[in-house]
Design a protein around this nucleic acid. Sequence first.
DNA 1: GTGAAAGCGCTAACAA
DNA 2: TTGTTAGCGCTTTCAC
Lengths: 351, 351
Amino acid sequence: MAEERRTDKVSIVEIARQAGVSPATVSRVFNRPDIVQAQTREHVLAIAGSHGFRPNRLGSSLRLGSTRTLGLVLPTLSNPVFADCFEGAEQRARQSGYSVMMTATHYDPTLETAAVHRLIDHQLDGIILTVADARKSSILKTLKARGMNYVLAYNESVIHPCAAVDNYAAASDMVSHLAGLGHRHIAFLSGPLDLSDRAKSRLAGSRHCARALRLERVRHYVMLSHTASDTATIARILEAASRPSALFCSNDLLATSVIAIVKELGGAVPGDISVAGFDGIRYGAFMSPSLTTVEAPGYEIGKAACHLLLDQIEQGAVRSEQLRYRLIEGASVAAVSPLSRKESHAACANQ
Amino acid sequence: MAEERRTDKVSIVEIARQAGVSPATVSRVFNRPDIVQAQTREHVLAIAGSHGFRPNRLGSSLRLGSTRTLGLVLPTLSNPVFADCFEGAEQRARQSGYSVMMTATHYDPTLETAAVHRLIDHQLDGIILTVADARKSSILKTLKARGMNYVLAYNESVIHPCAAVDNYAAASDMVSHLAGLGHRHIAFLSGPLDLSDRAKSRLAGSRHCARALRLERVRHYVMLSHTASDTATIARILEAASRPSALFCSNDLLATSVIAIVKELGGAVPGDISVAGFDGIRYGAFMSPSLTTVEAPGYEIGKAACHLLLDQIEQGAVRSEQLRYRLIEGASVAAVSPLSRKESHAACANQ
DNA sequence: GTGAAAGCGCTAACAA
DNA sequence: TTGTTAGCGCTTTCAC
């Protein structure tokens, strides 16, 4: 019976020949088994089985004009928040019988463009992507112009369909929270802003709230990358005459490395300075000190993005979805002093 | 000039018609530009550009019998070690012009099989995969029987090509290290062994070393999953009359959650009990206490697996590669007592 | 240097 | 219920 034996070039035609039926019948056996006579079906299936034959999707994709495959373009999977996003999207995709082609761009717009072109060439049915900056992205224009189905993940946009949290409001909430703990001098840390519109919105939200609460103006420090901070800059911040009492980092990877650097420099978190992050990575809870952060649900964002994309592909419905964030209070942020707490506790209303 | 305009069904044939050349010439312009006259080439390129035309890979894949796409099948991306593996593999693949189709199996052999079948159907040129148990995996037999190119990642095997560390030796080294710190009573923690042959080898390596060093027999505690430990079991271990002085967990996710649970139960790590992990996830260094673990280089494993796979596809060379591991000493393991250290410091020679 | 023609594997009309 | 036929987009001999 030798199932799944070496498969030298068996196609639907060869199976048809051996089964004494037409290729169309073999095709039907695999795609609409119900409409072919039980006897014929079993016979064809037996022949196919003996060859380990499985229909070549390339053929049907070409014919049908659909690959039932989605593309996923994310900055990096070493940030757990994007790994979660992948899991959410892939799970949702699989549930509808779609496969996923995935690629990482490492925050490089050139790779972004190249990646999307590769996906287009493969005739994917749709693409989920996180771009550096949704407003400036030329590849989004290309996608739109081609009539390609796509959904942004993490990037917010009014022009393009997207699944994201309200970064502006979330950052504002975090600053409000810090202010509630007596922090009046807060600095914002991120990688280059032109590589992340999320960081841009988070900075804007922070400044907005600081202004509303009449805190000191939020200074912005730019790290070389979005995934690790530079010791020199952190040292400079700590040594400054008027140093901030809290550092708000545009993501948890940055926050984690800031905390490590502060310790290396002989400082203590939150003793000498409070540090907050953004994203809510799982490991934040196990760190020392545990991370105060804004949780943006990666898995849910991926799942929602995929769901939106499938709606687009299957019903032509182009929609966006905003996901809820949640402030997580860890031990990396402490109150400045009992006295100053009350006066600044007027939160800027968001969400 | 309207580049990249809406692309209604332009194929190489349509471009050829508009350019007044044959489809063959258009094909040559994209694949072997050098062999077509500069003037013709520019003309064709201009027409193609004005349509935003890019050759449909489905056509060429079908014709050429190669998709230039690789499959990647991993348990889960929420374990950073697998996320790193993805990054290594994808980077290496892209470098050679290959795309990657990725799927997560969540340690479920059924999903493993289904995933591989999906990839086969898509006619991928090769597959990198981590299976539950390489010895028992039926899907590996299928792959081999079909003459499909594939490489295992993380799984060790003498039958199948693989990229992995020596789990047995690494676990043995860890136990040796623990013994060196005075631990004579060590327990091993993992998820179900039939879902991870790595865990199986690590347990075996641990027991081997314990025997060699005449430590107490290593007891094995089975958690419900490979990613989180159950409070009840941990409580039972802590309350036991003769409790182990060290817990060796088969991966860092497990170690992390064990530490959290011990704390919840009012215990201290390493005060009351030492905890070691395996994998060397980046976050281990930032945790409290920092993780003592064996670093298995995920990125390198993924990169090596991909490299081996490409060698297989392009030169028909079927090889394996063993990667180096490294013991990382964190603060989650402490010495038992200064006295007992010396006598048990005879390491079992491995690697 | 370029073109004509066949065919990779599949499915959807349409016909029987 | 099943078969015949055409064609999805591409590349590649083999002519010219």
